[in-house]
Simulated assay, not measured.
Amino acid sequence: MTDIFDHWPAPLARVSTRHCVALSIGFALEASDEELDGLLLDGETKQPLSAGDVRRIARQHQAAGRTVLPPCDQTNAEGLCVGHPIYQLQEDSQCS
């Protein structure tokens, strides 16, 4: 996977990769309402999801062949985050 920073003109160096944490669909389908209520937020409204909403979403992703609830928009077929590159300016940079 390439991203915009792989071809960025500034002297950036990829120093690390951040991975998002995913919630197991098995857990989402078996957990109690108390464990699930408010555990996840709606991606658009940022409001807490009810246990029923979490289970509904989990079933949709399970039907699509995933084993986890995708935590971001950069996931593999299973639903796991493939990583987000972290960059910093190279120390020998002449940029000011």
Rank of each mutant, 00 (worst) to 15 (best):
L12V: 09
A13Q: 11
R14T: 04
R14P: 00
R14F: 04
V15S: 08
S16V: 11
T17V: 15
T17D: 07
R18A: 12
R18C: 07
R18S: 13
C20K: 10
V21H: 09
A22W: 00
S24T: 04
S24Y: 05
G26N: 11
F27P: 01
A28W: 00
E30Y: 01
S32W: 00
S32P: 10
D33N: 15
D33E: 13
E35M: 12
E35W: 02
L36D: 04
D37Y: 00
D37N: 14
D37W: 03
L39N: 01
L40D: 06
D42Q: 08
L49S: 08
A51T: 03
G52I: 02
G52Q: 11
V54N: 03
V54L: 02
I57V: 14
A58L: 05
A58T: 07
A58E: 03
Q60A: 13
Q62R: 12
G65A: 08
R66V: 05
R66Y: 08
P70L: 13
C72K: 09
C72F: 02
D73A: 14
T75Q: 10
T75V: 15
N76I: 06
N76F: 00
A77H: 07
A77I: 11
C81H: 06
C81Q: 06
G83H: 01
H84S: 10
P85H: 06
P85N: 05
I86V: 15
Q90D: 12
E91C: 12
S93C: 12
S93R: 10
Q94F: 04
Q94G: 12
C95W: 14
